[in-house]
Amino acid sequence: MPADSVLPPAESVATPEVLPPPEKHVGVGGAILGAVPWIDKTGAVGGVFRAIRSLFGGMKITGGYLMRPSTVVTQQYPENRETLKLPDRFRAQLAFNHDENGYHKCTLCRICEEACPNVSIIITGREKPAVSKKELDSFVWRLDSCTFCNTCVIVCPFNVLRFDGTFESSVYDRRLLSYTLNQYAGPVASVLEKMEDPEARKAAMEARDPYSGAAIIAALIEKQKATKIAERAAREAAKASRVAAKAAAAAAAAAAQPEPPPEAEDVG
């Protein structure tokens, strides 16, 4: 009875109405128990019957699962990739919400960056000369440190962020787990605006491949690595040419002098 309802008359409070007992499911054990009225239903013997009843109840449930294969929840993942069903609120990757023209509404307010508990969001801005305000340069999201707490999505005042279900994000290099979310690999806006079919435009706006979002950090590291490899190759080439020159010099010396003096060994 709700507390704010009108108070009942005093006499009805004095003689409270006896409610009928709630209708209970009666199993086999319950039927036996009901059939034997002299059993104390709360005592030890009644406890045995209640135990039997609950065991039968459990067996009924599991037996029901066995009989109905439709209750199986297992998904045969690599085979059913096309028909895979993921929960709506499954959080796999942070993504930007785009409007129908392919623009996002991020205003560089950095509330998500502040809210992120472990600095998984790193936002950099750049000057927007026309309006003397900053605009988004790169929105880096680090999957490797993200705890998928959803706080950034909740705090965003412009509804820019969302978690989507593209969960196949495993890579062999941890550095590839940094994503630049505002990265856009599709055609430029002038081309997009000429597209008549909105569906085609939407499709053209999708990112080209799962790794295209890898952040600048990773690209920089890759670049460094490439530079190092090139430098090493150059060093090795130089060394090889030096060795060749030395060999040629030695050969020339041997040809000029059949008996080389002991100082000749230090040459080179």
């Binding site: 599991t62 699962y65 294969p69 199986v72 929840v73 297992t74 045969q76």
Partner: peptide, 10 residues
């Protein structure tokens, strides 16, 4: 197999 189907698995 039977255990799996008792537990909604395959």
């Amino acid at each position: 197999k039977i255990a799996a189907h008792f537990q909604c698995r395959l």
